[in-house]
Structure formats: C-alpha cells, structure tokens
Design a protein around this nucleic acid. Structure first.
Lengths: 171, 171
DNA sequence: ACTAAATACATTGATATCAATAGAAATGAA
DNA sequence: TTCATTTCTATTGATATCAATGTATTTAGT
C-alpha cells in the first residue's frame, strides 16, 4: 500500500553528530577498552577497579550507596560482586545493624590486587589526560558530572513503581 | 606476617573524583537509562536506536564500518543485530561484492519503528541539552570525540594479535 | 595460477546491564 | 502491638560487551 516510511539521511547525520547519549556510549566503550587492556596484567577490568576502589573506606559501606555512587542499578552491583567474591577480593557480610542489608568489605587480597593496579591506573590516566586539550579533563569531568547528576536525584518518596516493560514485539 | 597492604583513603577519593573512565561509565549508564526509559514506548533501547539510525543510509553498509562508527567490537555488533533481525527490523545480507562480508539493511518495518522513535529522541535530547550549562553540549561532544578518537586509530596493518587474556586467578 | 597473509564475520564463554519480580526486615501509623 | 508500607537485597531473563578462537574469502607475493 503506502510506500515505506523514509527518514532523511540528513536526519541520520544530525543524530550521529549531535546525540550526546551516543557520544557518551562511544567514549565509554573506548575508555573501557583502554583501561581494560592496561589493567589486564593486574587481573582487573575498569569496572572492577572502580568498584573495588570505592570499597576502600574506613567503614565498609552497604550496597545501596555504592550502587548510587557508581550510578548503576542495584541488581547490576549484586551481579558485579559475584566474580570478586569468588576470587576472594571482596567479602559480603550481613549488616548487624540492619539485617536486610549487606556490608561490602575489601579483603587483604583485594587490597593487594588494588595496590598492584593503582600505578597502572595512574600512568594510563596520565596519558589520557595529556592527550586531551588544555583544560579538557577538568571540563569534561564537570560536564559528565552534570549529566550523571541529572537523572540521579529521584526524591525517595515520589518513586512510583517502574513502568511496565514494553512488549518486545513491534507495534 | 606482614600487615595487609593499605591504600590511603585519600587515594580512593582522588580516583573517585578524577578518573575520567569512571566518570564516563557513570554518565553512560545514566544516559542509557534516560533514553531507554524514553524510548521504551517505541520498543527500542538507546543502543538499538543508535544502531538502527546508523543503518539509515543510501547504501547498506558492511559490518566493519558500522562497528567502528559505534566504537564497538565487531562481535558486539554481531550480537546486537540478533534481536533486531528476529524482530524483522534489520536484514543481514551477503555482500555480492565480497562474500566474506555482510550488508546491513534497515527494513520497512525497521524504518517505521525508527520514525516512531525519532520524535521521542528529539524531545528527550532537547531536554537534556537544556539541562546542561550554556555551551555545554557542544563542548561535551567535542571532548568526548577526542576521547573516542584517541583509541580508535589503529593503523590497519600494524594490528598485532591481541594479547592473551590474563588468567582469572589472582596473582 | 598458487600459496601465504590479511580481512570479514561468527561462535563461545565470561562479565555487565537493567526490568520485573520476590523475599525479608525495618518503619510508621493506628 | 499490629499490620501496611517502605526499604534492602537477590533472582531470573534478556540484551550488551569483549577476548579468544575458528572459518571463509580476498588479496598479495611469487
């Protein structure tokens, strides 16, 4: 019947060139590969490094705040902890103050792995920093912070149940 | 014997505050959720939207260039195409000019889905744009481009075989 | 033309990501 | 206290991501 719907190629180019989501996903994949490669000799991925580093605190944190800090879903954190627990680098303990909760503890082995990874992170990040234009790194961090912050603040009480997932079938 | 290795908490704070990889991953997750939520009524994720939009060209592209455009591994693209093929939105054809290769074709149904998603992308992106400080979006795109570009250019011929994956066991 | 090297993809296995959902414990209102 | 609500986490299922590897095809060197 009707001809198929055509989206102008110029629109495609516009989306390609301007979509911040796309640009961030691209950069995220590129940087993940960069740091994964660099950290491989230490046996860590970039995400594991960030997670374990965030657990290096005076007091072992519960899961919720850690997930929020990393801007990830709580279920993602649960999954991400599994391999670290298996390797004995992170211990997940019951919180005596709140028996629903867990406390995340970096083990001695975990700290050792992290200490080994730290100089790799430093040199990799120094290289990255020096590659960006003058003032770029700080500016970029600021802009990214604004983006991450945008979606973060959901007033605890106004949280409506999540929308139902759309059926996967088209239309 | 020796006490466990301790990484100063100040180092943890430094990494948290300065690591561009972490900042980008955080922003990537936050924006993914933002666009996934918005696009859900259209039945697309942010990644599927970007991928399908990149296929809206006068000539169907082979996989390699598309993977490069999205800064993703070629195997990731293969996997990402699977659900889109199942839904009949993308067709993967043999390239008559090079029988190793494939050509990625957006179907009429795919174009229709994309057309439905487009206004959602526009409004979501407009909101995002207006949330960032003056001049932020363009600046951010530029900086992200620099980051993505950094790791992208591997002169085709100098590609050495990928390093062996590190054994998963610590030490 | 023949063969070695390079190129284009696919498959497998492991981890990462999130929606939907469920369970257990804490909290608050009566 | 009692119970409805909220909070904290785990599980399941689907997709996303990449390393290692394998296969088929093309290209280049002879």
């Amino acid at each position: 019947m009707s001809n198929s719907i055509e989206i102008p190629f110029s629109t495609t180019l516009l989306v390609r060139d301007t979509c911040l989501c796309l640009h961030v996903q691209r950069a995220a994949r590129a940087l993940a590969r960069l740091f994964d490669d660099a950290l491989r000799p230490a046996g860590l991925t970039n995400g594991q490094f960030s997670l374990m580093m965030s657990l290096n605190r005076p007091e072992p944190p519960p899961m919720g705040p850690v997930a929020a800090l990393l801007a990830m879903d709580q279920t993602t954190l649960t999954a991400a902890l599994k391999p670290l627990q298996r390797k004995g680098w992170v211990s997940v303990m019951e919180n005596p103050k709140d028996r629903r909760g867990r406390l995340l503890v970096l083990t001695s082995e975990g700290k050792a792995v992290l200490a080994k990874a730290l100089p790799i992170w430093k040199s990799t990040h120094a290289t990255l920093d020096s590659t960006l234009p003058e003032g770029g790194p700080a500016r970029l961090r600021q802009d990214l912070q604004a983006v991450s912050g945008m979606t973060a603040e959901v007033p605890k009480s106004s949280r409506s149940p999540r929308r139902l997932r759309q059926s996967a079938t088209a239309e």
